[in-house]
């Protein structure tokens, strides 16, 4: 186990010293001291990132090439066998598809719907206090811990006792009643919708900030011309909030990729793996089934997808 720490220290050393020694220009003593001081100020932050973020992430990539269990003292090098197993594993592919569905639906709600709601609240249709109250009400779910949200909705969706079921019967829609989380056909979508319930209001509040940054006279000019609400939305709000839309889209996709809490609490990937996502697969492989190499391979897939999305984001932001 001490090996792991040693690995991390080696990893830590690579970017640190090579960069520093090649880049320091041999100039006046004063600059040198100033540069040293600058390093000292960023060093704690960098150290934290290297030890707890980058080091483990790289160690994880290395682990994915081995086959071993958590408590074993030796590892067997297996090359890319873990990845070959992944590609042949239907549950892994199901997980990938589920993450993609998660991202797709989340982008629809948290970018499309949230932006529309924000535009309406900022269009001064409602009296100020009403708009503020709506904003607070819709924002409220986002301050709750995901675990608590998962547990509350488990209760709300429970057959017979749950509010959803009782409401359906009262409305004469008893046929629709079902075990939302216990049915493989609906489990994933139910979880995704709970997630939308929690986050749409938060993203809406973000968009409201972005819309407020668009100069007010542009809106007044368009209103004077008699432009309709939807036209103002498409021609002014959307282009004006472009930057935020881009960032929110990326955040939402990244969030869907790393989703774990809500799924783990509500179904733990079941029933029959129907709501499995990469996060739950990775977690179960490592901490339940004790196949660390396999788990690391899943984590590495998450790592590279996240990296790709990050690079795309940086490119898009540079292009603007």
């Amino acid at each position: 186990m001490a090996r792991a720490v040693a690995d991390l220290l080696v990893l830590a050393r690579v970017p640190f010293y090579t960069k520093g020694s090649t880049m320091t220009r041999p100039s006046a003593n004063r600059t040198h001291r100033a540069s040293l001081q600058g390093w000292l100020w960023v060093a704690p932050t960098l150290a934290f990132l290297v030890i707890f973020v980058y080091g483990p992430a790289l160690a994880n990539v290395r682990y994915s090439l081995f086959s071993f269990s958590a408590m074993s003292t030796s590892k067997t090098f297996v090359g890319l066998a873990n990845y070959a197993r992944l590609m042949a594993d239907p549950i892994f592919l199901q997980g990938l598809v589920n993450n993609a569905l998660y991202a797709l639906i989340s982008v629809f709600f948290q970018v499309g719907v949230a932006l529309t709601l924000a535009a309406v609240l900022e269009a001064r249709i409602f009296p100020r206090f009403a708009a503020n109250t709506f904003r607070s009400a819709l924002f409220l779910p986002s301050i709750l811990p995901v675990v608590v949200v998962g547990l509350i909705w488990q209760l709300l969706l429970a057959p017979a006792m749950g509010l959803v079921d009782q409401a359906l019967w009262e409305l004469g829609l008893g046929d629709w009643s079902r075990a939302w989380l216990g049915d493989p056909a609906t489990a994933l979508f139910t979880i995704i919708m709970v997630s939308q319930w929690q986050w749409t209001g938060y993203i809406m509040a973000l968009f409201m900030v972005a819309i407020r940054a668009i100069p007010r006279d542009l809106y007044e000019a368009m209103e004077l011309e008699g432009a309709s609400g939807p036209r103002i939305f498409w021609n002014l709000t959307v282009p004006g909030a472009r930057e935020t839309i881009l960032i929110v889209t990326i955040i939402t996709i990244l969030g869907s990729l790393k989703v774990f809490d809500i799924v783990w609490v509500m179904t733990a990937g079941g029933p029959n793996h129907s709501s499995e996502v990469l996060g739950t697969l990775m977690y179960r492989a490592a901490f339940r089934d004790d196949v660390i190499g396999y788990s690391s391979a899943i984590a590495t897939v998450i790592f590279f997808i996240a990296l790709t999305i990050g690079v795309v984001q940086i490119k898009l932001q540079k292009d603007r």
């Binding site: 992430a57 160690a59 994880n60 996240a306």
Partner: peptide, 23 residues
């Protein structure tokens, strides 16, 4: 490299972190 840390989900570092903390 500081900003880059934002991209990485904690899941990716989970088991190695667990090992370090245990050790």
């Amino acid at each position: 490299s500081i900003l880059g840390g934002m991209i990485l989900p904690p899941e990716v570092s989970l088991f190695p972190l667990f090992k370090v903390l245990a050790a």
